[in-house]
C-alpha cells in the first residue's frame, strides 16, 4: 500500500514527522514533486476561483497524486493548544473529498482537535492502526519521528543563527512556511533577495513556544496560533534585522489583518508588504525588492546611501 503526501500546506511543517513515521513503520509513501506551472494550473482549475493561492496549489498536488498511490494523506487540524487556525485547515479534508468526489479519491485522514485530551501521539497510533501496526510499534515510530522533528528544528535554528553573523542587510521574511519554501510562490523571492546581497532570515524559524508567548507584546487578541508564532518572531528578531518583508498570498484571511497590525505598530523598521497571487511578474517583484533595499541603505548610510 502506498501513501501519497501532497507537498503543500502542512507538509512543510511536518515533513520530518510524517516521513520518519512512515519510514519507521515500513510504509511506502510518495511525496508530490515541487510546485510547478502544471500543478498550479491543475489546482486553479479545480479550486473555487477566490480560494487562496496555497489552497489552489494544494489541490494541484492532490490532483497530481491521484492514481499514483492508494491513499492520499490529508492533514486536518482544528487548532493547537496555543490558539486556533484559519478555517481553511478545518475544512481542507472535506474540500478535497468534495472536489475530487467523481475521481474515486481515497483519503487518509489525520485529524487533530485542540480540545480533545488525546494529542498528536494518539492520532499517529490511530494512523498506525489503519495499517494494522501494533500500538507499541506505532508509538515507538512516533517517538522516533518526534525526535527527528526536534533535531531538524534545532538544526534550522542553529543555521539561522549563523546567518545573523553574515555580511549584508538582514531581512526578516514574515510569512507562512508553505509559502516561503514553495518553489513557485516564495522561493523565487528569497533567491532574488540573496542575489541582491541581502540575507533573508525567516520568522518561521523560531523557538515556537517562546514566540507565542512574546506575540502578546505586540497584539493581545490574535486568535491564530501560526500567526502568533510569526508575530512573536518579529518581537524576538526585530532588533537584529534591518528591515521586514511581509510575504503573503492573495487572498489570505488572517494575513489581511495581521499584516496591517504589524505595519501600523512597527514604526522603527522599514516594512515591505508583498502580496503574491501567482500571476505576478518577477521583474516587478525585483524592482520592489531593489527599492526596498535602497530605502534601508539610505536610512542606515549617508544621503548617498554610502555606508
Amino acid at each position: 500500500m502506498k501513501i501519497g503526501i501532497p507537498r503543500a500546506f502542512l507538509y512543510y511543517r511536518y515533513k520530518e514527522l510524517w516521513e520518519t513515521f512512515f519510514r519507521e513503520l515500513g510504509i511506502e509513501y510518495l511525496v508530490s514533486p515541487e510546485t510547478g506551472q502544471d500543478i498550479v494550473r491543475a489546482g486553479s482549475m479545480y479550486a473555487i476561483d477566490e480560494s487562496c493561492l496555497p489552497s489552489k496549489v494544494y489541490l494541484g498536488h492532490v490532483e497530481w497524486l491521484l492514481g499514483k498511490c492508494d491513499y492520499i494523506l490529508v492533514h486536518r487540524i482544528a487548532g493547537y493548544s496555543t490558539g486556533t487556525v484559519c478555517t481553511k485547515f478545518h475544512a481542507i479534508y472535506d474540500v478535497v473529498a468534495n472536489t475530487f468526489r467523481d475521481r474515486q479519491i481515497k483519503l487518509l485522514s489525520f485529524n487533530i482537535e485542540p480540545n480533545v485530551a488525546e494529542g498528536e501521539m494518539a492520532a499517529f497510533v490511530r494512523l498506525g492502526k489503519f495499517f494494522k501496526k501494533k500500538k507499541v510499534r506505532s508509538m515507538l515510530a512516533y517517538l522516533a519521528a518526534k525526535q527527528a522533528e526536534r533535531n531538524a528544528q534545532l538544526k534550522e535554528l542553529r543555521e539561522q543563527e549563523l546567518l545573523f553573523h553574515q555580511d549584508g542587510f538582514k531581512i526578516l521574511v514574515v510569512g507562512h512556511r508553505y509559502n516561503i519554501f514553495d518553489k513557485f510562490i516564495g522561493k523565487p523571492v528569497l533567491d532574488r533577495l540573496q542575489e541582491l546581497g541581502a540575507v533573508p532570515v525567516l520568522a518561521d524559524i523560531v523557538p515556537r513556544k517562546e514566540a507565542v508567548f512574546k506575540a502578546a507584546e505586540l497584539t493581545g487578541t490574535l486568535p491564530w496560533a501560526p500567526e502568533k508564532e510569526q508575530v512573536g518572531a518579529v518581537v524576538l528578531y526585530r532588533e537584529r534585522v534591518d528591515g521586514l518583508i511581509l510575504l503573503s498570498t492573495f487572498p489570505c484571511g488572517p494575513d489581511s489583518l495581521v499584516n496591517e497590525i504589524l505595519m501600523r505598530r512597527l514604526k522603527d523598521k522599514p516594512v515591505l508588504n508583498l502580496v503574491l497571487d501567482g500571476h505576478q511578474s518577477m521583474v516587478g517583484i525585483e524592482t520592489r525588492l531593489e527599492s526596498f533595499l535602497d530605502i534601508i541603505r539610505f536610512q542606515e548610510g549617508d544621503a548617498y546611501g554610502r555606508m
Binding site: I48, E50, S51, C52, C86, T87, K88, A91, I92, D94, V95, N98, T99, P251, G253, S256
Partner: peptide
C-alpha cells in the same frame, strides 16, 4: 469576497 469558510462550503454546495 474571500470569506474562507463560505468559499470552502462551495465545493460541497456544488
Amino acid at each position: 469576497f474571500g470569506c474562507t469558510p463560505e468559499v470552502d462550503a462551495m465545493p460541497v454546495l456544488q
